[in-house]
């Protein structure tokens, strides 16, 4: 990656779901080391984009290239609503490590380490599904972080949380980025986007209409759709 080649490149990415062109020939290159926030109105295709890049949705057309050579990066995804197994917080992280092939002897220490980094050490033994929404989302972040992903996709991770819990999640996302993981995240919270973003990708009707450094985007968005979105004028679909 020292040569600055993109970590991930999508060309002509098209995804048709139930007759809807959720992505419509989208082009995107993600350089390493940045925090990208994907913005766009409801239905613009943000979730489908993240799920497609993550490999959960097969593109109808177009291609996704990793590192420019086809090797899929180590990656993880955090969803708006975390899905936890009916077992302890610690066991949920250990489960992800087991699936990833991490040898048993080191799983527990790695899992405890990840819980500590998101501030959940005290509830490691509690059943994951009885934790609060904010704690469960941080647990989802710990589970993802423990996998030491090169890239982490987050789809509106704070949309169901109260402001305090959202701020905690934001802090953890910033820490994950600082530790070297590429962040690609969607949000409808523009304050959060300003705080977290190095660059903004703006989606409109299944295409990336612009990809701009964050400070420039909020001053002078390039596309008229983005300008309207920032003014809050884009009609909700």
């Amino acid at each position: 990656m020292a040569d600055g080649a993109p970590l991930l490149e999508a060309r002509g990415l098209t995804v048709v779901l139930g007759g809807v062109r959720a992505l419509d020939g989208l082009d995107l290159a993600l350089a390493p080391g940045l925090r990208t926030i994907v913005l766009g109105a409801n239905g613009a295709g943000k979730s489908v984009l993240l799920r497609t890049l993550h490999g959960l949705v097969a593109p109808t057309a177009g291609e996704i290239r990793w590192h420019g050579n086809g090797r899929r990066a180590r990656q993880a995804m955090v969803f708006q609503r975390p899905v936890m197994l009916r077992r302890s917080a610690l066991a949920n992280v250990e489960y992800a490590l087991a699936v990833a092939g991490v040898p048993r002897p080191v799983r527990e220490s790695r899992a405890r380490d990840a819980l500590g980094r998101v501030g959940l050490s005290a509830v490691a033994g509690r059943s994951a599904r009885v934790l609060s929404g904010g704690e469960q989302q941080r647990l989802a972040l710990a589970r993802a972080w423990a996998l030491e992903p090169e890239i982490l996709f987050l789809d509106e991770p704070t949309a169901s949380l109260d402001p305090g819990a959202a701020a905690e999640v934001e802090r953890v996302v910033a820490a994950i980025a600082a530790a070297g993981t590429r962040i690609v995240m969607t949000t409808h919270n523009l304050g959060q986007a300003r705080r977290l973003a190095d660059e903004i990708v703006f989606l409109h009707a299944g295409r990336a209409t612009e990809q701009t450094a964050a400070d420039r985007f909020f001053e002078h968005p390039l596309s008229p759709e983005a300008e309207q979105y920032l003014k809050g004028e884009l009609p909700w679909k």
């Binding site: 799920r51 993550h54 959960l56 969803f79 197994l85 077992r87 489960y95 990833a100």
Partner: peptide
């Protein structure tokens, strides 16, 4: 229906997914 997407994201194979669901 609840677990599928998260499990696929983690890379859980079918056999393990079945075991996990039965246990959960």
């Amino acid at each position: 229906a609840e677990y599928a997407e998260q499990m696929r994201s983690l890379g859980v194979g079918t056999a393990r997914a079945v075991r996990t669901l039965l246990w959960d």
